[in-house]
Amino acid sequence: MRPFFEARHLGYTYPRGPLAVRDISLPVARASMTAVIGANGSGKSTFIRMLAGLLRPSSGEILLDGVALAKWPARLRAREIAFMPQATSTVFPFRVLDVVLSGRSPHVPQFRLESDADREIAMQALESAGAAHLADRYVSALSGGERQMVTLARALAQEPRLLLLDEPSTSLDLKHRATLMRTLARLREERGLSIIMITHDLQLTGSLFDSIVALCCGEVAAQGRPDEVLRSDLLARIYGEPNVRAQRIGEQTLVWIDA
């Protein structure tokens, strides 16, 4: 299928800092799920922040529907692409529902307030994220995992075509990890949502993802179907850890460290 979103030869250098991303290309088709893996400092977060429009690439280009991302008006872009950052640090005691409702803002005109329909969508998003019970709580009083669920709900309330997630499952318990993966799979099925997810959780990447991109030193070290990338030798090279083992059991790939 033709990609509706495409990163071409992206590079990024932090001001006065090191070269974080050297050359990454990634085409994204409708209703696809892509995992991005790699060691700490391999450029994963920088890469996804460029895709989210938070960093402007130093080189290369990002195309959404064939138009450069930088050319898209910010509000229209926000209707197409949602980003779930690693952590959100909300200082003020906002209510969870208000935070999720902020995901509707790209759809609401500048001088209007969110309607009841927006509130309905926000509630549904909370339910999808498995966080409906948190609606009336204060975000500032939530645990890390609960916050991640709220952030996911906010991103879903945007009703995007492309959802970018930066390590969404780090603080989630098993049940909510399962909820996350189920929700993503369902939204892809129902709405044709495309997903790019950074993860260290290689067990998650097994059966649901169409492809895995492995980054190493700001470059693509391997790219392909999960069974092509999740191999002992490749993983050992990417993570610089000779004792990584990967084995395929039916649809799943098991990854562990052989101590």
Binding site: A78, I81, P85, T90, G103
Partner: peptide
């Protein structure tokens, strides 16, 4: 609410 989030919300 959050600076990063604001940046991706238009």
């Amino acid at each position: 609410i959050d600076q990063d989030t604001a940046g991706t919300l238009g």
